[in-house]
Amino acid sequence: MKLSKQEFLSLSGLGHETLVAWIEEEWLIPGGSFAEMSFSEIDIARARFIRDLKMDLGVNDEGVGVILNLVDQLHGMRRTLMELREVVRTTK
């Protein structure tokens, strides 16, 4: 599902300035060009995660970047682990 910037803002509850700041930090990476960004469900879920980190957990901006980096590495490993499971299963 592809979402426009307006749809993304209303679904995520973010303000425009916050969105621009988060994109500059590379916390969010929308598709398309800067003039015509496109978003998907993973961006909404990620924005909600960032908001939870900042608001609910009291993580500061430096910490958010560190956590996102580590969480993304963890997901990369989890995905590879799942794919390895497939390879092991099919080559038996």
Binding site: I29, S40, I42, A45, R46, L68, N69, V71, H75
Partner: peptide, 12 residues
């Protein structure tokens, strides 16, 4: 999304 989807901009 992050573990199940293959191609997303945050994959690392």
């Amino acid at each position: 999304y992050a573990s199940s989807e293959r191609d997303h901009p945050y994959a690392d």
